[in-house]
Design a protein around this nucleic acid. Sequence first.
RNA 1: GGCCCCAUCGUCUAACGGUCAGGACACCACUCUUUCAAGGUGGUAAUACGGGUUCGAUUCCCGUUGGGGUCACCA
Length: 469
Amino acid sequence: MMDAAPRVRFAPSPTGYLHVGGARTALYNWLFARKTGGAFILRIEDTDAERSSEAHTQIILDGLRWLGLDWDEGPVFQGASGERHRQDAERLLAEGKAYRCFCTREELEAQRKAAGGDIYKYDGRCDRLSAAEVAARVARGAPSVIRFRMPQEEIAWDDAVHGRIAFHGRDLDDMVILRSDRTPIYNMAVVSDDIAMRISHVIRGDDHISNTPKQIALYQALGAPPPVFAHVPMILGTDGKKLSKRHGATAVGDYQDLGILPAAMRNFLALLGWSPGEDREIMTETEMIALFSLEAIQKKPAVFDMVKLEWMNGEYLSRIPTPELVAPVARELERMQVHVGGTHLLPPYIDAVKSRARTIVEMAERVAVRLDSRHVKLDDKGRKLRAKMGDGFVESLKVALEILGAIDEQGWTAEAILEQLKARAEAGGMKLGDLLQPIRVAITGSTVSEPVNELLEVVGRSSSLARLT
RNA sequence: GGCCCCAUCGUCUAACGGUCAGGACACCACUCUUUCAAGGUGGUAAUACGGGUUCGAUUCCCGUUGGGGUCACCA
């Protein structure tokens, strides 16, 4: 019999935003599913009612959609399967693979203290209670949790990215699987769900490696074959520490706000810990899927390099046809409260700044300057040039105004403008740059822009003259 | 601290025992040029350390060092 199609899941808990690490885990799951013709399932782990929220669920869904990661099933809410989790835990109890523990939090805390320090493994005292004693306490209505009796043997698996990883049961705790309020603990819920959903490959972050032996023990106790596990490395900040708020943007939404294109983000994330070989970097979605494999995933953590992300975004920006850029740029301009007067007017402006901007936000800022003089701000470079040129700066502007003022509305083209300015510069014995730079600064506030003649054409005659004046 | 994972340029990575250790970002120089960006050309820069195995180790084994993860009635 042929192996059934793989089934993978991305299972975030809705207790915060969609972290880039989570996003990359989702991406790898998605790539694997698309590559193998399997199913990509979204499961929301909301068993912690305290910290979970609908708003966070929505943000996660939006983030995945933004990245173009479509799921085949779900979202399945883990909280809805509480009854099955409970039954599985109680089945383990009935079969003698788990036991009731009556220790209160306070008692546990005392045991921990007595053991010295914060490293503590439950000593199994409740496992030594007689059946009669347990029955009596239950009859008395004493609250209890269910603890799993960890097998005292080697627990190992062949990880798809790491190779063989082995733990020993003696180092693992008799973990709680069902709370005293009869709700399941994480590991129980996950295993119960992954079995029920027939998950074949669990692709998740390295931080779950230590959970894996516990879960494998649960699979074995429940008589279900464990899936293939693939643990992907963490993403770190530039200081080599786990990526967190103080490194700047960590949520997918942050990058959206920064003006990163979803395709660029996806490409960049894919390469953080995975390489298709052959020096490939910029890839289409189709190529990425074709080239993807779990075995090629890196074992060591990767540092998130914002500079390279921006470079890659710039690459995507310059390749995307202008019409596709209109909507995102318009959205950004709207946020900046710049009046556009119709998105159909945008393309020439976008063309003008396209090859120079690395993000949508940067692009919108440049467009804004060309559209609306209120966005012109003299920056450091502009200031410096002005100071350097002194009176010559104003002089140049006067000359420019004179020449440009002589060009009428019909003749206002980049070619004609350049021709006139060039002729004048030559005649006056001045360098073209000395004439053009002040114009550039007057129009944009900066020494950086597209060629001045093109700039003037895009900004238009009346607006250009007004700004020069 | 116990257990587990990891280790090639500053960063992302390639090289499944034999390469001048390759590419990309960043950086530097030159070039192009009306500025900037882009482009083109060239350059600086890495196998953590110590032992093995082998004719030969980035590659396999052991140790050291360093980094990371995890040790809840959280997920």
